[in-house]
Write a protein that binds this DNA or RNA. Structure first.
Lengths: 213, 213
DNA sequence: CCTAGATTGTGACTAATTTCACAAGCGACT
DNA sequence: AGTCGCTTGTGAAATTAGTCACAATCTAGG
């Protein structure tokens, strides 16, 4: 089991897709699946599926394919979905609110244990069982509630400072919606969701396609 | 000017970052910038900056660097930001609402010209100057308002059908927030924003980091 | 006009990722 | 038990992306 090897980011993303496909198959009571089928549902090729999985071991049976339930279980393990994660949401604006209500987070084991904001109007409001707290309590919240992941849904000018404080308080993972590059120590993992960037990729693609002769 | 060559997706994403950095520099009245400085602000290396730009031509002056205004202008051109884009938003739920209000879209030239939803309770409501329309009018809206880009912020089970209809109506770009892989013709561009996937990448990273000996 | 210092643009190299191709292994059927 | 059809797992090849190093060339200053 080569667990220590470096795994490409893209492999991880595909693994997530495979898991989603497997869950659909589970709900359809399928018992086995081939790399070919998994590839189609995940939008890639059979060879890629097998290569991706081979990074983590060998889970299939030659001539037969993969056991849906077993592979799904293994992938959940790989992605760290065997436990629940405590998420601290910073920013109770539009985006924060949408994320808080996003049903697939809870479904996948991500529990929003706290919401913070800097706006005095919002502080004290209750979102379901969670009361919005002042952003000053970030360190307190992270340590007392043992937050694993911080989601930053704040204006760009506030993001770096909050990231610094979260890291200082011991968080090892940040999901950043603010359109700025964060500077964090190497052991802290950051993923970016940059909505404008996604649209720009599209307008580039459309423009290019048109100008190609 | 090698415009026809295939450009890596990752280059485009970095170009977006460079443009953001340049706009900050513009607001600080800087007139020139070196690849080194651009690299630091964009989170990459000087060589990478130059290689990325070289895909599109040569915009700098040796010994001096790049003119901030000129390069920003050129990058806007490359990314297709010289015109305004008409975006049709499908789904007026939490995510849709957050996107509709997202200030950076308008700032960058993406105008939400219509909002559609399937919920009778929502249809007819006014979001600022835009009235929410029934999702049945998708084709009509795309053709009458000349929609360029469709944003899908709908439940996964509805996404494929809506994508098919949007493509049929002539849309060439889709930004998909539903956690499903869309099947579209090759000439249609799709980018995915999959929030769960981003969190999974983080929980994987944390888990791995811990288990590495 | 010539030199010094700086910085680009790019071709050669290196690293990473994906694709290919096929031996190995499994189950079903005879 | 032996054969057949199918599907995995994986090294090797091909492709793609990123880094390096340096010639080319610009400005400034004497």
């Amino acid at each position: 089991m080569p667990v220590t090897r470096h795994i490409p980011e893209s492999t991880i993303r595909r693994i997530s897709h495979y898991l989603r496909a497997l869950e659909i198959l589970e709900s359809q009571e399928a018992t086995t699946v081939s790399s070919e089928e998994l590839a189609q549902r995940g939008g890639t090729t059979a060879a890629q599926v097998r290569k991706d999985l081979s990074h983590f071991g060998s889970f299939g049976k030659r001539g037969l394919g993969y056991s849906v339930a077993e592979l799904a279980d293994r992938l959940r393990d790989i992605l760290g979905l065997k436990c629940r994660w405590r998420v601290v949401l910073v920013g109770a604006g539009r985006i924060g609110s949408a994320l808080f209500e996003y049903p697939y987070f809870v479904q996948r084991g991500y529990d929003c244990v706290a919401v913070l904001d800097s706006d005095p109007e919002k502080i004290g409001m209750s979102w379901g069982p969670v009361r919005i707290r002042p952003v000053e309590e970030l360190e307190l919240v992270i340590s007392s509630l043992k937050g694993d992941i911080v989601i930053l849904a704040v204006p760009p000018e506030a993001a770096q400072d909050l990231a610094d404080r979260a890291v200082e308080a011991g968080v090892r993972a940040i999901l950043n919606f603010a359109p700025v590059q964060l500077r964090v120590p190497a052991e802290v993992h950051v993923t970016y969701v940059n909505l404008v960037l996604e649209l720009e990729a599209l307008s580039f693609a459309i423009t290019q396609a048109g100008s190609r002769t």
